[in-house]
Structure formats: C-alpha cells, structure tokens
Simulated assay, not measured.
Amino acid sequence: MNVYEEFIEGMKQNNLNKEAIIDVLNRYVDGHDFLQRLENFKNKEGERREYRGVIYSDEYEQDDDEYFGRHHVLFYSGNGDEDYDIVNDEELYPYISAACEFYIRKHAEKEKIIKELLLKIKETYSHSQSPSE
C-alpha cells in the first residue's frame, strides 16, 4: 500500500469520507510544508491553486453569488463542477486531526509542535460559532 492509499484508509477508518477534503489534506501531509498548512488553518487562511485549494466562507458576504454559508470551509480538488466538499467548522476538525495523527506516525520528532498547533486550531474553530448559529 502506498502512502496515498494508507492516508485514505486512515480517513475511512475514522469515518471521514469527503473526497476533496481527503485529497487536499493528503497533499498537505505529503508535502514539505505541513506545519505551514496547519498555521494557515489556525489563521483561517486559504490556499487557492488552479485545481486544489481551501476557501473560507468568511471571504464572502451573504449577498455574494459565491456565498456558501456562514462558518464553512470549501475544499476543491480537480477541475469539475462537483470536485469539492463543504464542511462547517465543527466538521472540519476531525479531518485535520486525522491528518495530524497520520503525519505524526511518519514524523514522530514533530509530535509536540503538531499537537500544539492542533490544539490552537481546535480553539479557533470552536470559538467561531455562537450557540445560536
């Protein structure tokens, strides 16, 4: 089993099955700048490339044509109209957490910093919604 398949299998074992999110996170975990990607999630900074990226709903106003809900994150991977997944802030954390656990298994020496960033990410997304939303 290659690393990509191993990552997908790990996500499935955690009942995480949104393909665009898995694809984007797999590329992040497999890249050399995973720590920077986690910083970006902590700061709600998306990355947009031609065929892959992360977009935060905070970037749009409610009356914009592109608006896709409040406190949501859109992941896209591919060039088709259906090659995306949208999750709310609460649904996002398990994906990032599973990606971090996978990364730690491959890079045990970075466990402390990854767990610190993961805690900050959890705080960021747990405070972004009020109970009435």
Rank of each mutant, 00 (worst) to 15 (best):
E6K: 02
G10Y: 13
G10H: 13
M11T: 00
K12C: 00
N14S: 14
L16A: 03
L16I: 01
N17F: 05
I21D: 01
D23A: 15
V24P: 00
N26V: 00
Y28V: 02
Y28G: 11
Y28Q: 14
D30M: 07
D30V: 06
D33P: 02
L35A: 14
R37P: 00
F41W: 11
F41P: 06
F41K: 03
F41C: 11
N43C: 07
G46L: 07
R48S: 12
Y51R: 08
R52F: 11
V54N: 03
I55W: 06
I55K: 13
Y56M: 07
S57Y: 13
E61A: 04
E61K: 14
E66H: 15
F68I: 06
R70W: 13
R70T: 15
H72S: 13
L74G: 01
L74N: 05
S77Q: 04
G78S: 06
N79Q: 11
G80R: 14
D83F: 11
D83R: 03
D85G: 08
I86V: 13
D89M: 10
E91D: 12
L92E: 05
L92N: 01
L92Q: 09
Y93A: 03
Y95I: 05
I96W: 01
S97I: 00
A98S: 15
E101K: 08
F102A: 02
F102V: 04
I104M: 03
I104Q: 04
K106R: 06
A108I: 10
K110G: 00
I113S: 03
I113G: 01
L117M: 09
L117R: 14
L118F: 05
Y125E: 12
S126V: 04
S126Y: 08
H127Y: 09
S128A: 15
S132F: 14
E133R: 12
E133L: 09
